[in-house]
Amino acid sequence: MKKLHLVLLVAIAAVITILLSFMGDLSTYETLATAKLKEGKTVTVIAKLDTNYKPAIIYNPLKDPNTTTIYVKDSLGNAAKVVYHFEKPMDMEKSERIVLKGKMKGDVFDITSKDGILIKCPSKYKDDPKAASNNLTQN
């Protein structure tokens, strides 16, 4: 066997290992209802703030600057309480869509990684024609 073939074989083995390593960590997109069925497993849920709660975001840095509690609901209308063990992301109030990565613990969706909440950055709304149109009809 040629050396090059050996090298390529090693390379292919490396690729497979790498892909498998990613597969081991994969999470899946769930709704809040199916996430409850997979309690304890890391899942991704796309939700938005549950406006039935006022406020829907509870962050009291005076008492604990490292816990943010939010109430969300998903597109199917399931609601849940989310506990995020970090500071409140700066523009969360404005977010129309929140991507949550964490585990369901009982009725609480628990997020222990800082990257576990992704909200769209406000600058990205700027090119959204709807936002611009709203802006033009105000004041």
Partner: peptide, 16 residues
């Protein structure tokens, strides 16, 4: 498909 990187998005890259 329905794939997504888990909660920790940096470590899966770092360890490779």
């Amino acid at each position: 498909t329905n794939w997504n990187i888990g909660e920790d998005k940096e470590f899966p890259y770092n360890r490779i």
